[in-house]
């Protein structure tokens, strides 16, 4: 497939951080090893400390302390962006996220804007083992005033950061590591089969479709990190079975805005929700709970949730493949739902 040399997702993200720090001296970058020359474990903060030495803080290994510092800065009207080196470690910062960042917005009798973003590289398929491969999104769902986002190859990071910092509520941005080296999509084109657009607005969900966006057999809702796998499955489902998938990639995971979804979702009557997190109490269940009241009576099959297995993620790649959601997992689920 012919592609021009489009920007990689990591470059888009790095460019957004540069723009944020440049535009507003109140924006900080805080995290472990974020300064040059290392520039962060995934090089996302590359070049920031050189250009903005007063806004970049390389910290000791102490996630609770780092996020606590961000909370204090946000309370003082600053706009800190925190990098958690591996999203798995966000568990260490659960207390300041739950009890400082999010609560401060609504527990002082008047609304206190908390403009801060906690960036979490997440996800597996890299052979990093049980404690560096997880997708902890579900553990942060349902906290008042805490908004969850996920990086996507469709959504421009500059616009996303502008929106997260403007919201006045703390945000956690999940960044699937697999995306960093992928390229951003541009010009409404995904490949020779699929196109995309933003039916509501450019910060709403991206809609990936084949032919017409209004005709689909199955609607697949998946966050940005699953884009490649879902597209692989959708391509094979069409070429082998002529099953047409409409893929919806929301950039905001929680609160999930079901009202912004395109009407075609009801027309298909068959919905699959995919997430990389382990089974049980996950984001997919939250999405399904939002959709059922809207689509009651129009669904032709129960909403199908696709998750990774209810297991610890192995380090060995062939075993990791079996535990985590793959293109085949999505393919099988859609095939089953399409036949229902």
């Amino acid at each position: 497939m012919v592609r021009s040399q489009r920007e990689r997702v990591s470059e888009n993200l790095n460019r957004a951080l540069h723009a944020m720090l440049e535009k507003d001296p109140r924006v900080w970058m805080i995290g472990e090893d974020v300064s040059d020359p290392y520039g962060g474990a995934f090089k996302i903060t590359k070049g920031l400390s050189g250009r903005f030495p007063d806004q970049v803080v390389s910290t000791p290994i102490s996630e609770a302390g780092i996020v606590g510092l961000a909370g204090g800065l946000a309370l003082s009207g600053e706009r800190p962006i925190v990098e958690i080196m591996f999203g798995d470690f966000v568990a260490l910062a659960f207390d300041p996220i739950l009890n400082l960042l999010s609560k401060s917005v609504g527990m002082y009798g008047r609304r206190v804007p908390m403009r801060t973003v906690v960036r979490c590289p997440v996800g597996g398929n890299r052979g990093y083992g049980p404690t560096h491969s997880q997708s902890p999104q579900k553990h942060l769902i349902g906290i008042p005033h805490l908004n969850l986002y996920e990086l996507s190859p469709f959504h421009d990071c500059s616009a996303l950061f502008g929106r997260m910092l403007a919201a006045g509520e703390p945000a956690v941005l999940f960044e699937n590591k697999i995306l960093y080296t992928e390229r951003m999509y541009a010009d409404s084109t995904v490949d020779d089969l699929f196109s995309y657009d933003f039916p509501a607005s450019s910060d709403g969900c991206a809609r990936v479709f084949l032919g017409s966006p209004d005709a689909a057999d199955v609607v697949v809702i998946a966050p940005g990190g699953l884009t490649g796998r879902v597209l692989d499955a959708a391509r094979r489902l069409f070429l082998e079975h002529e099953i047409v998938c409409l893929i919806l990639v929301p950039v905001q995971l929680y609160p999930f805005d079901a009202s912004s979804l395109p009407p075609a979702i009801a027309g298909a009557g068959r919905i699959v929700v995919v997430e990389e997190g382990t089974a049980g109490g996950g984001w997919g269940a939250e999405v399904a709970a939002c959709l059922y009241p809207r689509l009651w009576g129009r669904l032709r099959a129960p909403i199908r949730l696709v998750t990774s297995a209810d297991r610890v993620i192995p380090a060995a790649r062939h075993l990791e493949d079996e535990v985590l959601v793959q293109a085949d997992t999505v393919y099988d689920a859609v095939l089953e739902v399409a036949g229902a």
């Binding site: 070429l239 079975h241 002529e242």
Partner: peptide, 8 residues
């Protein structure tokens, strides 16, 4: 070239 043909 450039035409996608499904298996069916």
């Amino acid at each position: 070239a450039g035409v996608v043909i499904t298996e069916p």
